[in-house]
Nucleic acid binder design. Structure first.
Lengths: 249, 249
DNA sequence: CTGGAAGCTGTGAATTTCCTGAGAAACGCA
DNA sequence: TGCGTTTCTCAGGAAATTCACAGCTTCCAG
């Protein structure tokens, strides 16, 4: 009845640790709104989340929580991001870290860090991006059970999360970054109606304040590239949202 | 926490908690008429309901009531909706929340709310919509989730609440949003006569002031699409209402 | 058999929702 | 810096949906 399954609440396949327990992620940011937002979204992935508001708390929590991955803001009140990283590494030498950083402060410091297999996203980020990067990190770190499953397939449409390659019926399709994220979100929820609000919340960055019809616009772009001439896979449910499903159905 | 389903003697599927006790829902709104309306409708679902009129009361009640889901008006007298959400989350990190919000306030403030798996409906809402969304949230918040839970079946007629797809005898049928909600209401109460007043109260928003014969109209639409030629499933009980049941009977 | 009540449905108009072209602004890269 | 690409706003138009109205049919009581 309540047995552990490999199917997440969304009906997608879920990352699990080798022993079947949920993946653990530690979120470190001093802005409460950010930790809340991330905690929510990552819990929804079926992961176990703890959060900390500063470097000291992060190291402490890490020590007893033993996370499989850490989301770490580089800008913390009490400690420099690098210092936190150092101490984290002393506790958990192999844990992969996803850095959160301001847009402009990227190049200099992060570049070297990600060489070790870590990754980063810039603020403001989209949740799809964070989730995707985290999944990648966890998958590559070997903490998760199911390895090398980075390809989403819906009908004759495939999307590779690692190489960012998309093709339909074997034919390669070039997508822009936003188009790619939108399609990934759709494909991670096949045959499910996703409202424009859900899509906006998930695919666009959390501070996006624009018109909601960007979703319509990008759906329109995607259709041009994905459905173009062929049997349509992206469908509108008027008054409800959009969904993707195999063409033959 | 995980929800399971059982079938009541009336032939109606209801959500239950793992230990067999009824699902608990906390309703938070400052308008008494709204909390009353919702409490009534949700109790009718077989759920256990508590209500609160402000943020403080909501947090207090949540602490001891431990609800499985919360219906939360974004516009409360003492606290901002987001503030209430924050405190609720501290008490119950994983409880799903259904937000009630004014129609025009959608764009600005909802951003980010559906990201964590929460959902919202705009005022004025229809009860069917609230119930359906709540069922979805509760279902998805549980560890065990079977896809079939989202599919209603009556005879050879099926309705998928996730994909919003309807088919009879395997043949897909396109329904508009209102038709879909009406059919869902009928199918959730098979073999039961539903009066036009009941239907109006559940399927149309609570402030609907139009002609009562919209129900007849939409029943007519549905028949054209569902029964069209085939053995009829939607029946009129003159002077009483309508009911749906399997064709062979 | 008949009249009224209840229910059914065609017509059409108002409204909502969605799609998409055009162009401005922002971005990335050389 | 300059150029091509990407993102996004705006607005017009197309299409779908909702609903009122009114005439018609069906049912039933007397």
């Amino acid at each position: 009845m309540c047995a552990m399954t490999t199917t997440s609440p969304q009906g997608r396949t879920e990352l699990l640790r080798p022993d079947g327990s949920p993946v653990r992620v530690l979120v470190v940011d001093d802005e409460l709104s950010i930790t809340e937002l991330l905690s929510m979204a990552l819990r929804y992935e079926g992961w176990q989340i703890r959060s900390a508001g500063d470097g000291t708390g992060a190291v402490q929590t890490a020590r007893e929580f033993r996370p499989d991955a850490v989301v770490l803001d580089m800008m913390l009140p009490d400690m420099d991001g690098l210092a936190v990283l150092g101490r984290l590494r002393r506790e958990l030498p192999d844990v992969p870290v996803l850095f959160l950083t301001a847009k402009d402060a990227v190049e200099d410091r992060i570049a070297g860090l990600t060489a070790g297999g870590d990754d980063y996203v810039t603020k403001p980020f989209s949740l799809e991006e964070v989730v995707a990067r985290l999944r990648g990190l966890i998958r590559r770190s070997g903490a998760a059970d199911r390895r090398s499953d980075s390809v989403l397939v819906v009908g004759d449409l495939t999307l590779d999360e690692d190489s960012h390659e998309v093709s339909r019926a074997g034919e390669g399709i070039h997508l822009t970054a936003t188009e790619f994220e939108l399609l990934r979100f759709l494909m991670r929820n096949p045959r499910r109606v996703l409202s424009k609000a859900q899509i906006l919340d998930r695919v666009w960055s959390y501070d996006f304040g624009g018109q909601a019809n960007v979703v319509e616009l990008y759906i329109s772009y995607l259709r041009r590239k994905i459905d173009a001439g062929r049997e349509p896979m992206i469908h509108t449910r008027r008054g409800a949202g959009y969904l993707i499903k195999p063409a033959v159905s």
